[in-house]
């Protein structure tokens, strides 16, 4: 049987090193399979996260040969196996152990977003009417599996560590989903500018490139949000119109 070598970062917050593991590989295997095999046979205490093994839960994010990927959706036959495959944890978050990082900041950042607030129901039975064409756009954003790979590559978080001032691409996607939700009547532009720090984003599009769900984070979420902020804060006339027609642009 064919074998391949994996160079896996082992260690915790106090430091670590790469350790080489050689394991058998078979047809169709993904990186997560190899990690599981190594875990079962050579390193029982090798830490990694996973749940669905089908790209649906966003648990198994890591850096494979330096690229941010879901380990369960990365096929070994797409990687050069003549040299070791390196596996490292995501870099934008504090390290816990081996391939596991402390992503709890994301859950705190999420709490800062104002919740969904629907308009009154359209019909006496308490329901609403929405056309499919009106929900398509938001459904794109709601595909997000919270893998946090986009957060991991965004330089505002990764290099500049502005975690207190910037919520990151994942949460701009969430704000966009709320702001463009056909029923929502909340206004989040003030927060976008202040607490969420959308101004720090300089549209490098690195986030869009790594999204395993193919969400066009920059073009479809961030840029329209930036426009909304600009409209609201620098366009007094537009603001006045909005006063009478809240969410006119929805």
């Amino acid at each position: 049987m064919k074998t391949a070598t994996f160079k896996i970062w082992r260690g915790d917050a106090n430091g670590g090193k790469f350790v080489d593991y050689t394991t058998e590989v078979s047809e169709g295997m993904v990186v997560l399979d190899a990690v599981h095999r190594i875990q079962a046979t050579q390193a029982n205490d090798l830490a990694c996260r996973w749940n669905c093994k089908a790209g649906k839960c966003g648990s198994c994010s890591a850096e494979v040969n330096g690229l941010p990927r879901l380990m369960c959706m990365t096929r070994l036959n797409d990687l050069p196996l003549d040299k070791p495959v390196t596996l490292e944890p995501m870099k934008a978050f504090p390290h816990v152990k081996d391939l596991v990082t402390d992503v709890s900041w994301n859950f705190r950042a999420k709490k800062k977003i104002k919740p969904f607030k629907p308009r009154p129901p359209d019909t006496p039975d308490g329901t609403w009417r929405m056309a499919q064409s009106d929900v398509d756009r938001v459904q794109e954003f709601r595909k997000c599996i919270e893998c946090f790979l986009c957060q991991n590559v965004c330089h505002v978080l990764r290099e500049h560590k502005l975690h207190d001032e910037f919520i990151g691409p994942r949460f701009f996607v969430q704000v966009a989903a709320l702001e463009m939700h056909p029923l929502d009547i909340e206004d989040r532009t003030e927060e976008l500018k202040q607490a969420h720090g959308i101004g720090y984003c300089n549209i490098t599009k690195c986030c869009t490139k790594v999204c395993p769900e193919g969400i066009t984070i920059t073009d479809n979420a961030i840029i329209p949000l930036k426009e909304r902020v600009v409209d609201n804060f620098y366009d007094p006339l537009g603001k006045l119109v909005k006063l009478f027609r809240p969410k006119a642009q929805k």
Partner: peptide, 20 residues
């Protein structure tokens, strides 16, 4: 299920705009 919609869930729609 309707309550989920009131909490922000977006199900696929019928032609007349209800939950498909």
């Amino acid at each position: 299920v309707r309550e989920l919609e009131a909490w922000g869930a977006l199900f696929d729609r019928t032609k007349d705009g209800r939950i498909l």
